[in-house]
Design a protein around this nucleic acid. Structure first.
Lengths: 239, 239
DNA sequence: CGCACTCTTGATGGTCATCAAGACGGGTGG
DNA sequence: CCACCCGTCTTGATGACCATCAAGAGTGCG
């Protein structure tokens, strides 16, 4: 059930069988949601964290006039709000972008797991630090990249992250966002995302249509994005 | 020496005397730097983390053409790279913006402190999660706020963060950045920052001059910024 | 089959970038 | 002590990128 989560952890870390069992036993409940549900709201007191099993989730914040900014996308295997374990409440909302299956992990079990398995404490701390690294890359994108480079960078990131759990390859991946939701990730309007997608298509770099990203030339796409996967920390971390 | 760090931790958490001693003993060395030194480079293998005692530091990334984006500013009392404890290397550089005094804390001592004092493990995990929360607010700024609102939001954030360690009050704070460095935080050019500062001055909201921010109307500034300090998690977290 | 949402494209405009040049200011040396 | 110099600040002119407004076409779901 949480195999993708273990796969994801094992990209970077060694997880032995005892630890694996502890992780598997930390799940208290599985839930399903339709697309477009805000499943956690900023400011709520939380007693569990949410592990994404299937579908896409995002973290978003908004301004008074309703403008929305997505701060991170979550792919299957990700904890969407592991940070709520230490923060107790979130500064952002969590929204389902597609139909989702999630597992709930109570905070007291996270406490158990991390105190009984100090190595897992480091692994999960790493995991929230990886989220922060992704945030920084988005800061760079939003602050300095052009629209086309920003869009290319997002697709490159997702191609890698989804690839790690078997949901993407060099040719592309399923990606059920609307152009408006893409715009909310990229700090653009949906109209401009539409024109930018058109340019990427005409430049034979990638096509996004019918809930699917088709990558025509990954190397060229990465070049347009100035994509360097270092910020995703794909190397193995010894114990 | 690291009193500001303890002050900062105690805003949110209870730190008892045994823990305080452990923290104080974790420092191995103190260093000084002039302004404009890149003290840590992306990709270096790190064996210690850097605690800022005095001055201002930033984390930045850049693109091929030399465009730079600052992802976070650090004020005295902050760990600039506590996340290197789990990540082992950084995805960004760390630069002194003014003269700085820093304390080095070897990673093996962080390991000691966090295993012998599980409560401090949560406190320091929280601390990196707070950095991520700041990143998210910057994502919102860069993606959705106008130049004037972005600049106001940055000043509001720093007024609070510096205030927590006694380096700012309602009237303002010392802030020795150039307009170009401000632009690198805000995803703008220095020319546009200059014009935006002029507008803030003419609107009687704030003045930034000679290395000092003078706040004329904090409430109005916060309103322009749509500043909500919730993302800084100023509430006390019970043990 | 119809309706609602999403996508697509055109026209226009605003925000911010770029280029350029002069003023200011703080530090240094004669 | 003053002159000089370099970095920073300031302002103007122009233009690019992306937003906004609008309307029609496409698509999928009930």
């Amino acid at each position: 059930m949480i195999d993708r989560h273990l796969t994801r952890l094992r990209i970077r870390h060694d997880i032995d069988e005892v630890e694996e069992r502890a992780i598997r036993e930390s799940v208290s409940e599985v839930r399903e949601y339709l697309a477009g549900q805000t499943i956690i709201r900023a400011g709520e007191t939380l007693r569990y964290s949410t592990l994404l099993l299937d579908g896409l989730l995002c973290r978003y914040k908004d301004l008074r006039d309703g403008q929305r900014q997505i701060a991170e996308l979550h792919v299957p295997g990700d904890f969407a709000d592991l940070h709520s374990y230490t923060l107790k409440q979130l500064d952002h909302n969590i929204l389902t972008l597609t139909r989702c299956r999630v597992a709930l992990v109570p905070h007291d079990r996270i406490k158990q797991v991390t105190t009984q398995h100090p190595h897992l404490a480091d692994v999960y701390w790493f995991s929230t630090n990886l989220d922060a690294a992704i945030h920084r890359e988005w800061v760079l994108s939003l602050g300095r990249r052009s629209a086309i480079s920003r869009l290319a960078a997002l697709v490159c990131e997702l191609q890698v992250r989804l690839g790690l759990v078997g949901l993407a390859d060099d040719k592309g991946f399923a990606f059920g966002l609307t152009q408006n939701e893409l715009a909310e990730c990229l700090g653009l309007t949906s109209v401009h995302v539409n024109r930018t997608l058109k340019q990427l298509r005409e430049d034979r770099l990638m096509t996004f249509r019918h809930g699917r990203v088709v990558i025509h030339d990954l190397a060229a796409l990465r070049d347009v994005a100035e994509f360097d996967p270092a910020y995703l920390y794909l190397d193995r971390h010894p114990r």
